[in-house]
Design a binder for these strands. Structure first.
Lengths: 365, 365
DNA sequence: TTGAAAGCGCTAACAC
DNA sequence: GTGTTAGCGCTTTCAA
């Protein structure tokens, strides 16, 4: 006894398979009595429509996908999460959690399900293809999958790139969403310069291949230009976007001697948090001796002491927007590629010298 | 020009469709030269295998599913998350985020993708069917979907119930995973009684239909029995598991007059956090005047002042375990139903009277 | 090692 | 309103 199909239900209800199909796809088109018979038959047989068959026949799955990088060490099977107390390594992932959340909600409202796939650094990179074969369209977090694969797949179905400007010219025709990295960092830096009167600021950037990091640095530059200060040509330090690297980075900055900066702008919160730890160790007071700010708005930034001033990215909204674009694109495949920039907001906390609680979030688009 | 299929690739490569299929499913079974030709053809055509067709032909999707409740107000489209600062309402959802995370990882390692679906309270409850039709098996958070639906679907494919003991006898034959609610609450209560010398404890439970809540209360009772104290027959108060209700609950407890309790044990962290707020308002000092403890281990519990003593559930592990069970069940459909109880750990923070930082997490299975 | 052919369970014209 | 009939794109024997 295998799973019942439309044929079984049809026979049991004394109708044709087409009618069974109609009852599920478009109940109104079937007379109430017939519909009832079909439903009873289906229930007694335990019929569950096959998504695969449906998808094949209708050439549409009603599933949207999301590919994102899995930052965590894939081998750390038992070494993570559940044993440590509270927000720790796992904060790293909140970023994608929020996006997932946003997409799931938005998708569901529109009658789509969400298929998620993290690309383990190790795994074979046919990840995209795996996903692509099962969905009507999908979103990809920048730098998650090889551009080549994406190019091919994007010819077949809608793809929207998330967070991180078009990383490759060949992906120019894709819809894409980014956050206001430039404007956010500009506003944040301006706050440091104008409101706190700081003059000597250092920037700790990411490796040059991160478009987000570069855009943030340009915002940092712009704030200097705007204030008539000397515009730095490049980040004072470049590092990986981790806490450990953040610690290392401040360490280096302060060891340099010469005129110590009055404030350090980090390309992300993780590094800034790491720096905070290191600074405490070094006996450098934040914000009295040195202001520290980040970028992202991870919850951890609120836990640390002093609480971290930062720029919050609207991750949830990012997910929602992705679904919007996907659905729109599904409806009109040949519309012009869309490029959306989501506004961010500066979150003022203690680490820049503001009194805590002064959490005005000002939008910067 | 529609998407290329096996036929197109086969023609282009000068082989049969069977060979194309083999190249994807079992490359070893095709001669290297032939394989190469097929792969080149596929690449130039931009071929992406159809998951639906594959699923239909092979009767297996290589996708696992997860159904969970969406706690948030579905209408609050623009009113949430991105605008408020830091952990707030969104903490409510971390629970499922962690499970998703755990399942995704575990699934991926085993070559499965993850389909997630939150059931909006509003939406039609065919959610399960939607998911069921597209996956090889799935996990369900207790009380997410109607038992009736589940029963039918479980006849066709593996289902594992998460968190919350078998809620219905008819679901007895399902695999299921729960956390050590009883043991956890027992250990926590014992800590209050033995280590802090508290005698008059109140329990704020959930509505009686929550199996988790009831199990926790039994743990609470057991600790009393163990200590030779009078065993309470029922929770002092019952409430919904929200912060607002937590506030209301303590308010009520303290207003009663008579002998005020020395400590309050809440069935979950949310309520406990709400209580903390209310107690501050009332000028009751925690833990000096009143000890407060929760259950769950949400990050918010660490943010509040005083930090909340609680019992942490291993959410991530829950997700991983779910995949394990599902995969095992897929391999042997007729094995005995499995019932797993995951160990929890007591997290001692300030709210019970411990000094902060004393975060021994002791496992209790 | 490769090919031919028969479905997998459903949808979508198109008739009636 | 309902039935008939082709496929949808792939996997999978079974032969060759």
């Amino acid at each position: 006894m295998s799973a019942p199909t439309v044929y079984d239900v049809a026979e049991q209800a004394g109708v044709s398979i087409a009618t069974v199909s109609r009852v599920y796809r478009n109940p109104e088109s079937v007379r109430a009595g017939t519909r009832e018979r079909v439903m009873v038959a289906a229930r007694t047989l335990g019929y569950v429509p096959s998504g695969s068959a449906r998808g094949l026949a209708s050439r549409t799955t009603r599933v949207l996908g999301l590919c994102f990088p899995d930052y965590a060490d894939p081998d750390a099977e038992d070494a993570d999460g559940d044993t440590d107390d509270g927000p720790g390594e796992s904060e790293l992932m909140l970023y994608s959690d929020e996006i997932i959340r946003g997409m799931e909600r938005a998708a569901r409202r529109r009658g789509y399900a969400l298929l998620i796939a993290a690309s383990l650094a190790q795994g074979p990179e046919n990840l995209v293809a795996e996903v692509a074969g099962r969905v009507d369209g999908f979103a990809v977090l920048a730098q998650t999958v090889p551009v080549g694969d994406l190019e091919i797949i994007a010819r077949r179905l809608p793809v929207v790139m998330l967070a991180g400007p078009r990383e490759d010219a060949s992906l120019d025709h894709l819809d894409h969403i980014e956050v206001a990295n430039f404007d956010g960092e500009l506003a944040l830096t301006r706050h440091l310069i104008v409101d706190h009167g700081l003059r000597r600021l250092a920037f700790v950037g990411s490796t040059p291949d991160s478009p987000d990091g570069e855009a943030r640095f340009r915002g940092f530059q712009a704030a200097h230009r705007e204030a008539g200060l000397r515009v730095p040509e490049r980040p004072d330090v470049r590092a990986e976007l981790t806490q450990a690297e953040g610690r290392r980075a401040v360490g280096g900055l302060l060891a340099t001697g010469g005129d110590r900066p009055e404030g350090v702008v980090f390309a992300n919160d993780q590094m800034a948090v790491g720096a905070l730890t290191e600074l405490r160790r070094l006996g450098v007071r934040v914000p009295e001796d040195l202001a520290v700010v980040g970028f992202d708005g991870i919850p951890l930034g609120q836990l640390v002491a002093p609480a971290l001033t930062t720029v919050r990215q609207p991750m949830r909204r990012l997910g929602e927007k992705a679904v919007e674009l996907l659905v729109a694109r599904l409806e009109d495949r040949r519309a012009e590629p869309v490029s959306v920039v989501l506004p961010v907001s500066v979150i003022r906390r203690r680490s820049c010298g503001c009194k805590d609680g002064n959490t005005d979030s000002v939008m910067h688009s």
